[in-house]
């Protein structure tokens, strides 16, 4: 197995809860001794309900949060070493939830150029990278538009293009679809899969929509900062009761199959798509 692109060992992050007057109330452990390895080229979904620590975890992958002890390595680089932060951010790009709050440029192509500009890439090379990112995300026609005139899904694609122009080996998407309509959500998830398959970029998708995790190679379920479950989508979605106990939904069709099986229908363990269910029922 090649060396993990993301490696964490006993990653712990605590913060002090305060009441309205600012007096400490107690300590919350957002991430609790988390150890995991993500192989290059993988598509990993990290799911969990609000407050499960998934966003806090994501911020450690980009050295936006730094652990107190050595605990996170991105492509072998320890995130505690400050002089490596730029390298780490070039290796693991990050896309955030709200597209409006992460687009800096007033023109689509200028925003995409922002990362490479910061990295000091020569002008001709920036041009190449921007054109490539525009093409990969099918934004060529929007090149000179103002980001304000794009739909939510398009804006989020601009954000992804901006990260892509930095030529990262890994992209962390932190709830990229939370503010989008269903169409925009599908658009973003499709894009993430395409980049993973065609460009071989490692994708770490953080989400609380379980439907979005169905096509991942590997799902990690977080709860209270710990790994509650992990495995292939089929393995994870087979454990419907446990997921429901964690207040996570399963895809509708999986739940339907689960209910039918409980009523005595002979169905395989985890059904992930409508087609699979239709096939299982018609045999």
């Amino acid at each position: 197995m090649p060396e993990a692109i993301v490696k964490t060992r006993n990653l712990t992050y605590e913060y002090i809860r305060r009441d309205a007057e600012g007096n400490p109330e107690g300590v919350t452990t957002a991430v609790d001794h988390l150890s995991l390895d993500i192989a290059p080229g993988a598509f990993v979904a990290i799911v969990g309900r609000n407050g499960s620590g998934k966003s806090t975890f994501a911020r450690h992958l980009n050295a936006l949060l730094v652990p107190e002890e050595s605990a996170v390595w991105i492509n072998g680089m320890d995130t505690r070493e400050e002089e490596k932060h730029l390298d780490i951010r070039m290796t693991a790009g990050m896309v955030f939830q709200n597209p409006d709050n992460q687009i800096i440029g007033q023109v689509v192509e200028e925003d995409i150029a922002f990362g490479p500009e910061n990295m000091g890439v020569p002008t001709e090379e920036i041009r190449l990278r921007v054109d490539e990112a525009l093409q990969l995300l099918k934004l060529e026609k929007k090149r000179l538009d103002s980001p304000n005139r794009l739909s939510g899904g398009q804006k989020q694609r601009v954000s992804i293009a901006g990260v892509l122009a930095m030529r990262p080996r890994c992209i962390v998407l932190d709830e990229p679809t939370a503010m989008l309509d269903p169409q925009g959500r599908a658009e973003v998830i499709r894009t993430a899969h395409r980049l993973n398959r065609k460009e071989g970029i490692t994708v770490i998708l953080i989400t609380h929509h379980m439907e979005e995790a169905v096509d991942a190679d590997h799902i990690i379920v977080l709860d209270k900062g710990k790994i509650a479950m992990q495995g292939s989508p089929r393995e994870v979605f087979a454990r419907v009761e446990e997921l429901r106990a964690l207040r996570l939904s399963v895809p509708q069709v999986t739940y339907l199959a689960y209910l039918l099986r409980r009523k005595g229908l002979a169905l395989p363990d985890a059904i992930l798509t409508v087609e699979e269910l239709v096939e299982a029922l018609t045999v």
């Binding site: 150029a113 490479p116 920036i126």
Partner: peptide
């Protein structure tokens, strides 16, 4: 203020570290 703090984080994630060593798409 929330937007500003989000934006700062996003800029940092995209390697923004001031004007030093910065190149331009349209110099």
């Amino acid at each position: 203020f929330r937007r500003a703090s989000d934006l700062a984080l996003a800029m940092e994630a995209r390697c923004y570290h001031g004007g030093k060593g910065r190149t331009r798409l349209h110099p």
